[in-house]
């Protein structure tokens, strides 16, 4: 049995470390982590390079088995041309389908005519690095490469809020 004071010392050390982190948190921005994924053509894409210079990027995690995810990305598609014109946004749809359904991604995307860059994350490496728990989960990256907004789940009408955020961070 370990003495209680040893436990409390380590607990205190943890609390002190966390206080140190919290003091510096307000100055920390987030950027997209570096993970190598493949697109629907089998081409390697480093996720750190997804952000656009001077225009926003929406990174949307989804799966073919996730109904709200498909509703979200189909809803965005109805506004995509206008959003691009007004804010310069590019949408990147990251599929977390695993080996069971990865092969369904390309035919589905074509059939619904998504004009997005689609990436495959079959073992959720990028999703984990982005702290995604459930899909859909959407991140907005500004033109400086900073993650400035994120949203979990999808309800009809959420696209209005996305557009407001795009106007805030989009090309002026």
């Amino acid at each position: 049995m370990r003495p209680m004071n040893a436990l409390s010392n380590t607990l205190r050390a943890g609390l002190a470390l966390s206080a140190l982190f919290l003091l510096t948190l307000p100055s920390w921005g987030q950027k997209l982590p570096s993970v190598t994924l493949r697109d629907l053509n089998g081409k390697s894409v480093n996720t750190a390079s997804l952000a656009q210079n001077g225009a926003p990027t929406l990174v949307c995690f989804w799966a073919t088995w996730c109904s709200p995810c498909k509703r979200e990305l189909n809803a965005y598609m109805e506004h995509y041309a206008e959003w691009q014109k007004r804010t310069g946004v590019r949408i990147v749809a990251v599929s977390i389908d695993d080996a069971r359904s990865t092969s369904r991604v390309a035919p589905y995307v074509s059939s619904v005519d998504w004009d997005y860059q689609v990436l495959l994350d079959p073992n959720k490496e990028f999703a984990r690095a982005m702290q995604v728990i459930n899909v859909p989960h959407t991140f907005l990256v500004d033109g400086k490469g900073q993650i400035v907004w994120q949203h979990n789940n999808y309800a009809d009408g959420d696209e209005d809020e996305v557009f407001q955020q795009l106007l805030k961070y989009g090309r002026k």
């Binding site: 943890g14 948190l25 307000p26």
Partner: peptide, 29 residues
């Protein structure tokens, strides 16, 4: 585990601050 428990407590208390930081879109200094 004990060390990280302290770390986690701190972060559970402070996520609001983190979110504010992100919503402001402050770039990393």
């Amino acid at each position: 585990g004990a060390c990280c428990a302290g770390l986690l407590v701190g972060l559970l208390v402070g996520p609001a601050g983190v979110v504010v930081a992100q919503e402001e879109g402050a770039p990393a200094e």
